[in-house]
């Protein structure tokens, strides 16, 4: 009988699991503390499992502390895991980042990608749905009565900002076919579902959309972009407030510096940046996410 916990310290080829490695010896033990990194599961697990172990390896090399990647199954779980201290450094979306900081006062915004300053969502439609290009927010009314899917409930680019723009265009959630939108769970799934025709339309983050177009997984004959939203701030790295206590004075700075130092000239770092769809990371501040917080409060995702 082979019964092994899904997460073995050091690497986890399988899907995400709940068992954070090495938490047993974590708190207050003399053993070397492990930096546990995580991310909201916004894309296919297969891609996350390719990207984040690379990030872990690179940070481990740069910082000289053991780093592990702990996969989580949904956005809410990532926020919770950050609050309960099961994750030290997390790649959050705009909304989840605000949620996490509100729940863990003192959490530090470390960095964002160049593209996160003005991030965009793309409304996409199945070519058979009869939906045409939309010129402005008002045009979103064309979506009324269509089968429509968001990504995750807590996604900024896959739900929060699109819902905000939909409301601006006069579309309520109950206006969609079936009386409610779907929540596919991730951007990749939204594309696949719209492409298959299971939904007439959906909304995804621009970076995932262009990646899917580039590698040919999105078939232009079946699924097309119909509108690009105005820009808003999105993804960012957030660290626990107590990193300096646990890993030594100045560790947060060092960590931030390490992320900011990634360049396309270094082959490994280039691989990471490519998977992130970015040229490089830059400093970010909590203040940039005020707008997200406001919209979050409007829609009720932040209270």
């Amino acid at each position: 009988m082979v019964l092994l916990p899904a997460a073995l310290p050091g690497g986890n080829p399988g899907g995400p699991s709940l068992l954070p490695p090495a938490r047993a010896e974590q708190p207050r033990s003399q053993a070397k503390p492990v930096l546990r990194i995580g991310a909201i599961p916004d894309q296919k697990p297969e891609k996350l499992n390719r990207l984040y172990p690379l990030v872990a390896a690179e940070l481990e090399r740069q910082l000289g502390v053991p780093v592990t990647y702990v996969p989580v199954v949904d956005y809410t779980a990532a926020v919770t895991a950050f609050r309960t201290g099961d994750l030290d450094l997390v790649w959050f979306g705009g909304l989840t980042g605000v949620q996490a900081r509100l729940q863990k006062p003192g959490a530090q915004v470390l960095a964002q990608r160049d593209i996160d300053v003005a991030f965009h969502s793309i409304f996409i439609a199945n070519t058979g749905s009869g939906l045409k290009q939309i010129r402005d927010v008002k045009g979103l009314t064309a979506l009324k009565g269509k089968r429509f899917t968001f990504g995750s409930e807590s996604s900024t680019s896959g739900r929060l900002m699109p819902q905000y723009f939909l409301a601006k265009g006069g579309v309520k959630l109950a206006d969609f076919a079936g009386g409610a939108p779907g929540f596919s769970g991730s951007h990749d799934t939204t594309i696949a579902l719209v492409q298959s025709g299971a939904y007439d339309a959906g909304v995804v983050n621009e970076q995932v959309w262009s990646t899917n177009l580039r590698d040919g997984r999105a078939n232009r004959a079946k699924v097309v972009a119909i509108w690009r939203t105005p820009g808003y701030p999105d993804y960012h790295w957030i660290g626990q407030p107590n990193l300096d206590q646990r890993f030594g004075k100045g560790f947060s700075r060092k960590l931030q510096g390490a992320i900011l130092s990634w360049r396309t000239s270094n082959p490994l770092q280039k691989q990471i940046l490519t998977l992130f769809g970015a040229q490089q990371f830059s400093k970010a501040t909590a203040a940039s996410y005020k707008q997200i917080e406001q919209v979050g409060r409007q829609i009720g995702k932040i209270r």
Binding site: L4, P5, A6
Partner: peptide, 11 residues
């Protein structure tokens, strides 16, 4: 392997 270990955890 991943399914078996996942199944192990579930069981």
């Amino acid at each position: 392997g991943s399914a078996v270990s996942g199944l192990g955890v579930t069981v």
